[in-house]
Amino acid sequence: MNVHDKYKPLTFWERTYLPRIWDGLVITMHHFFRNLWHFILARFGVQREWKGAVTFQYPEIRRLFHPRLRTMHRLTKRDDGTPRCVACMMCETVCPAKCIYIVAGQRPEKEIEKVPVKFDIDLGMCVFCGYCVEACPEDAIRMDTGVIEMASYSRQSLILTKERLLSHVPHPEYYTMRKDLELAAKPVQLRTESEAGVEAH
C-alpha cells in the first residue's frame, strides 16, 4: 500500500493553506485576548483566580521536586562521620561522562580497609544520569540535596571535592509526590548559599 494512500487528498481550499492558517491564528489570538483580559483584570484587582500565565516566578517562588528528581550529589556518612564510600570505583567505572575521579587509600582499621583519599565529581562534565547512585554497593552517593543551581564563574569551582560532597545535606522537604502541593505556588524558604553547599565567589 502506498504511504500516500493513508492521507486523503487535500481540497483546493486546504491547498491554499489559508483556512488552516486562519485556524491557527484563531487559537493564538484566543489565547492572546483571554490572557490579556485576565492580566488586565488582575492588574486592577478585579479578580485573582484566573491567571493569565502558568509561570512560576522563579527564584522567588519554587516548585517542589518529584522525589525521583536527581539533583546535586552528596556523599553519605557512617554514624561516626566518616564517608560510607569504600572507593570501590563502581561509580567511576559506570560513569558515562567519566566525571568521577577517585583515589583510594588505606585505613588502619581492618574492617574498613579501603577509603577514598580523593573523591572529585566534575559537575562541568556530569550528565546527571544517576548511574553512580545506582551502582554504589554501599549507598554512599546520593542525589537528593535538592540543589539545582550550579552555575559558577570558574571551571575549578564546578569540581566537587570529597569535603564538599560530604558537607551536602539532603533536603526531603523540597520533594513531594502530591500534585496539589506541586501546583500550589507555595514559596519555599530559600536556602543560604553555604547551606546549599555552593561556594560563593
Partner: peptide, 10 residues
Amino acid sequence: KQSAVMQDRI
C-alpha cells in the same frame, strides 16, 4: 511580551 501573552507566559 506579545508572544508571552499568546503562550500563557508572563
